[in-house]
Amino acid sequence: MVTVSRFFAVFVAFLISCGVFASAQAADQGPVKVLTSIKPLQLIAAAVQDGVGTPDVLLPPGASPHHYALRPSDVRRLGDADLFYWIGPQMENFLERPLQGRSKPTVAVATVPGLKLRHFVADSGSHEDADEHDHDHQPGSLDEHLWLSTVNARVIAASMAADLSKADPANAARYQANAKAFATRLDAVDAKLKAQVAPIAGKPFFVFHEAFDYFEDAYGLKHAGVFTVAAEVQPGAQHVAAMRAQLQAVGKTCVFSEPPMRPRLAETLTAGLPVKLAELDALGGFNEATANGYEQLLSELGDDLVGCLNSL
């Protein structure tokens, strides 16, 4: 009887030690490795992962999500990441082939259910709204700058929290709480921005690249003209002449480009006109991946827009 009891005690101790060992192994694995294609997705992921881990981003500041050339180290990071988020092939088309060989979870954010998406209307440069089930548009017609809507940012954060909770159940409550806190902070950002831009809502401004429509729609703004719908497409001479005529008719105004490069066309378009050239950074390339990084991106857009128009 003593022998049986002693054996049972040893067996229980063995099981406990195995459990401790397994827990130690899990702890040694560290936080879930999250990698995003572009900075705005990293900023949203940072809010969700706050206090547990820090997400990484593939593209360096200033790199174009349309024309990036992956380095061998980038390919390794793609393979190592536990979760990878990108907008989708309509934006980061250079990722389509590399991602075919990836075995771990990959999320094309543009396909996340619940997003409020915008699509370009053929030949007009304008948009029409659609929900996530609308597939009636031609390929390439999606306005992929979807992160500039706080409605979409909330949906993306909730989706990331669900993914992280599945990958790391021990921290599920933290991820869910972070996503909820993020949504609450966005309510405050929305209210601040609406009040901030209200005085300049009627002032005309122009953009080189049609990248800000989600932001404009959210806060009651509308650009007066755009020089090209797609960043990689150069406008023709006839369009350039028409845009210069528009600038002349408007008078004092701001023309916004995106960093890091100001289009060479800028000087030609604005020469001799009372036009101020400024920048709006839709990608937030130099924002730090902190819990509040996404809110800072939006706040900086509001500050830069209002700052230029108020200086005229």
Score class of each variant (00 low, 15 high):
residue 185 R to V: 08
residue 94 F to M: 06
residue 143 D to I: 05
residue 240 V to W: 02
residue 268 T to G: 09
residue 71 R to G: 01
residue 95 L to G: 09
residue 301 L to R: 08
residue 117 L to S: 07
residue 189 V to S: 15
residue 74 D to K: 09
residue 40 P to Y: 10
residue 154 R to I: 05
residue 175 Y to T: 03
residue 277 L to C: 08
residue 143 D to P: 04
residue 155 V to W: 01
residue 221 L to T: 11
residue 83 L to M: 10
residue 53 G to F: 12
residue 263 P to E: 13
residue 282 A to S: 14
residue 269 L to D: 06
residue 39 K to E: 02
residue 146 L to H: 01
residue 89 P to K: 14
residue 157 A to G: 09
residue 261 M to C: 00
residue 196 Q to D: 15
residue 113 P to G: 07
residue 124 S to G: 05
residue 233 V to Y: 10
residue 142 L to V: 08
residue 222 K to P: 01
residue 287 N to D: 11
residue 51 G to F: 09
residue 205 F to Q: 03
residue 77 R to K: 13
residue 123 D to N: 15
residue 204 P to S: 05
residue 61 P to R: 07
residue 6 R to E: 13
residue 69 A to C: 01
residue 294 Y to G: 09
residue 311 S to T: 13
residue 281 D to R: 10
residue 250 V to R: 07
residue 220 G to Q: 05
residue 29 Q to E: 13
residue 228 T to K: 08
residue 190 D to E: 15
residue 127 H to G: 00
residue 136 D to N: 13
residue 226 V to F: 11
residue 260 P to T: 14
residue 206 F to I: 10
residue 71 R to E: 06
residue 149 S to T: 05
residue 199 P to A: 06
residue 18 C to W: 13
residue 212 F to P: 00
residue 211 A to I: 10
residue 167 A to M: 14
residue 251 G to V: 04
residue 311 S to Y: 05
residue 277 L to A: 09
residue 81 A to S: 14
residue 197 V to P: 13
residue 7 F to L: 15
residue 44 I to H: 04
residue 279 E to C: 00
residue 1 M to F: 06
residue 271 A to C: 00
residue 67 H to G: 06
residue 203 K to R: 14
residue 83 L to H: 12
residue 290 T to N: 08
